[in-house]
Design a protein around this nucleic acid. Structure first.
Length: 418
DNA sequence: TCTGGGGTCCTAGGACCC
DNA sequence: TCTGGGGTCCTAGGACCC
């Protein structure tokens, strides 16, 4: 039995998370191949191992795999982010039963922190893994290490050798670490993407072990402080902090490609108003105000006109942002263009608590109105009440031809057992 | 013909000031 | 008419992540 010195990070991630979510309420799919498509049913973003073995990768366009899906009788789904978000919360709740230090990193993975853990940590994590399976039917892998980057490396091996490792790999002892790093290509290190790995290879750095042995000061000058941190983390020296409380977002974005390209100004206004409405909801949910709004359009011929407008004072009132859009659209709208995509971003965020508004301008702050709007929509569904500029047509709405039911968030979609 | 969306952080370069 | 350099702030763009 090993007593661990120093803090240990564990990375728990769900294998093919979206596929696992789709299978959750469809036990008949447990052993059937499944693929999940991106927004607009544009490309594959999650797939089971069988589909992977056929050569379907993340980002493969739907039209390229359409016949393959049919031929192999693969079930495919449009993405259902409402469902995935909900299952993600349940996943984190289970993790919290095993340590009080849980830091969600993305929808399908979370870091855990163990400090002064007494006992067999590997055994503890194996139990965690089995519990997530028993309670939620989610298959997960766990990687342990003295830094987040090494926990990521460990997780990589846990996933790669699920059978022999039982899905749990620990790189806390230096014994296995050299082997693990020697056999990990530099592009598979967390924080080293395609561009950086190409540059590193030009320097003769091919594996994680090569990078581990580099002079970090030299690499810091050649690349950036991030590279320096990665090297130190690979050596077991923590540089990345553990954030228990997710920080409020510094910017909020909502954007979509259109299901079909549009060119009318009223359609564009509707789409932008829709995105601004969603942004403002997120803004109020994290109790922030924004002082400016930016929106962008993508035209069919590859231009990206964009406008940024500032408010006279920070606000979370949807109507002010809708007015700004109306104003900005006048500037950039070109009736001869065809548009493929639109998006809205809120910038200059600050906490709404404690904000002192201009005493001469209080008519523009209507928190009660926004609160009522949010609570009515929470009860009766998105856009039960909305501003007129959102319109009714949604000619621009995205494609989602095979979305699964909202099993966990819509009364009408709850599974019934007969 | 048809290829997603939402974030973060870092750096370089320009504007401005003293 | 000639002439310096350092600091700060902002923005755009690049790179990364899932």
């Amino acid at each position: 039995m090993a007593t661990n010195q120093g803090p240990v990070y564990a990375l728990c991630d769900v294998n093919s998370f979206y596929v696992a979510c789709e299978r959750l309420f469809r036990p008949d799919l447990r052993d059937k191949p499944v693929v999940v498509l991106s927004n607009n049913d544009g490309c594959a973003i999650a797939m089971c191992s069988f589909s992977k073995s056929l050569g379907i990768k993340i980002g493969t366009p739907y039209f390229e795999i359409k016949s393959l899906l049919k031929r192999h009788n693969i079930e495919w789904f449009s993405s259902n982010y409402g469902l995935y978000g909900d299952i993600s919360q349940r996943f984190n709740w289970v993790l919290q039963q095993f340590t009080d230090k849980v830091s969600p990193y993305s929808v399908d993975e979370s870091f855990l922190l163990f400090e002064g853990f007494n006992g067999d940590l590997d055994e503890h994590c194996l139990k965690l893994k089995n519990t997530v399976w028993e309670w939620l039917s989610l298959p997960i892998c766990v990687g342990l290490g003295p830094t987040k980057t090494l926990a990521k490396v460990a997780n990589h091996y846990a996933k790669k050798h699920k059978q022999s490792t039982h899905g749990v790999v620990n790189l806390c002892s230096t014994r296995n670490r050299q082997w693990a790093l020697e056999n990990l290509a530099v592009e598979n290190i967390w924080g080293v993407g395609r561009r950086l790995s190409r540059k590193l290879k030009l320097q003769g750095i091919f594996t994680a072990w090569d990078l581990h042995n580099c002079d970090y000061k030299t690499l810091q000058r050649m690349f950036s402080v991030n590279m320096e941190r990665t090297i130190l983390e690979l050596r077991g020296q923590p540089c990345l902090s553990f954030n228990e409380q997710p920080k409020p977002k510094q910017s909020i974005l909502n954007s979509r490609s259109f299901g079909t390209a549009i060119s009318s100004r009223s359609d564009l206004k509707e789409a932008l108003s829709y995105h601004a409405t969603r942004c403002c909801e997120k803004l109020r949910k994290q109790s922030s105000l924004a002082n400016s709004i930016q929106f962008f359009l993508h035209t069919r011929d590859g231009n990206h006109p964009q406008v940024t407008l500032s408010l006279t004072e920070p606000s979370d009132d949807t109507s002010l942002f809708l007015q700004a859009i109306e104003l900005g659209l006048k500037r950039v709208y070109d009736s001869s263009q065809t548009y493929k995509k639109a998006g809205v971003m809120l910038l200059g965020l600050e906490p709404s608590k404690g904000y002192q508004s201009d005493i001469f301008d209080q008519t523009r702050q209507r928190p009660e109105l926004m609160e009522s709007l949010d609570s009515i929509n929470a009860k009766f569904g998105q856009d039960a009440i909305k501003f007129g500029s959102l319109g009714f047509d949604k000619r621009w709405a995205m494609r989602a031809n095979a979305r699964s039911p909202h099993y966990t968030s819509r009364w009408g979609d709850i599974v019934s057992v007969s």
